[in-house]
């Protein structure tokens, strides 16, 4: 077999192994929760003042467990779960939104999260690295130092604090309007997309505003170090024009930053409860939080399955792409 094909197959097998390990751990964790969906349902019923005898409760609990498929032994549940995910692609019903299937629940929420978070990852990465490389190359040391001070000062502050302070500042002090989302329930795909984009614009702005620090700080540090590298100084002494030297610094500094971008993109599948909560934005983070609160095992596993697959796929892509952009990293069997 060609070594390259073997390498790709090996990496793919590794990705599968990662997915399997991930979902198994998630499965075990879900079953380790101290409560289950049936108990929760009944306790709510009782709390709302339903008068039920002990036997009725017991019967109802058994029925619910049977309905949710939780009455079988844990091994059996695990095997069914594996078969569903790996073979039939079925994810079962959600307990909290019974009998809506997990797929439908996720399909409704995931596009929102993907749209916002992918844009955030890409734009923050571009902005952070762009300003970073400019700050490292500029002659205006003062401007770049001020930027760096801001970035380093803001970076460790939790996003919740930053976002809420920003909202207070924006809405209560500057008294600027926050674009009101309103509702669109029907409409063509394009109308829907435009609506989603409009709704994502404000959180996107805030996320990017506080999201470029990491890329900026690391890019500036890498590029400043790169400026002093022997081969850059040598190119200068060879008579390379300033622009060629700048491009060389950029090209060599950007390589390690790709890891950050791709791994950042893989995280978008888990959503961001914080962002969705603060900006009242529908997304997968809400769904996951609800699933945990309601012991909705199926939904929980469904959401985390996507996140696991995304991380595994991102790592797989990085493994395949790095040899193309960095000649020092080679595929096996390549000269």
């Amino acid at each position: 077999m060609h070594p390259l094909i073997r390498y790709v197959l090996q990496r793919a097998a590794l990705a599968l192994l990662v997915v399997w390990t991930g979902i198994t751990i998630t499965f075990v964790l879900s079953r380790l929760m101290p409560f289950n969906a049936a108990d929760l349902f009944i306790s709510r019923l009782v709390a709302q003042g339903g008068t039920l005898t002990g036997e009725q409760i017991e019967a109802m609990r058994r029925q619910l467990l049977e309905l949710y498929g939780l009455e079988k032994s844990i091994i059996e549940q695990y095997l069914i779960f594996l078969r569903n995910y790996m073979v039939t692609g079925e994810m079962g019903p959600s307990f909290a939104y019974f009998p809506t299937s997990v797929k439908d629940v996720i399909a409704k929420a995931l596009p929102w999260s993907l749209l916002l978070l992918i844009m955030t990852s890409v734009v923050s990465w571009l902005v952070g690295n762009g300003i970073g490389i400019l700050a490292a190359l500029t002659k205006h040391r003062r401007v770049s130092n001020v930027l760096e001070t801001i970035a380093v000062a803001f970076q460790p502050i939790p996003f919740a604090v930053l976002a809420i302070s920003f909202l207070v500042f924006y809405a209560l002090i500057l008294k600027l309007p926050i674009p009101a989302p309103g509702y669109v329930t029907t409409g063509s795909a394009i109308e829907m997309l435009i609506y989603m984009l409009r709704r994502a614009a404000f959180p996107l702005m805030v996320l990017v505003l506080f999201g470029w620090f990491g890329g900026f700080v690391s890019m500036k540090a890498i590029a400043l170090k790169m400026r002093e590298e022997d081969f850059i100084v040598y190119s200068f002494l060879q008579g390379a024009p300033t622009n060629s030297i700048r491009y060389m610094i950029f090209r060599n500094s950007i390589l390690p930053q790709f890891t950050g971008l791709v791994l950042g993109l893989s995280r978008v599948f888990i959503g961001s409860l914080l962002v969705e909560y603060i900006f009242n934005y529908p997304g997968i983070g809400y769904i996951l939080q609800g699933a945990i609160a309601n012991a909705d095992y199926n939904l929980m596993l469904g959401v985390l399955f996507f996140a696991t697959v995304a991380t595994a796929v991102a790592t797989f892509i990085l493994d395949l792409v790095y040899p193309l952009i960095d000649p020092r990293i080679r595929y096996p069997g390549q000269g």
Partner: peptide, 15 residues
């Protein structure tokens, strides 16, 4: 000019 550490002065990303 032949630099002092001439083993390490080539751009690693270029043939």
């Amino acid at each position: 000019y032949i630099p002092q550490n001439s083993m390490n002065v080539l751009n690693p990303l270029k043939r």
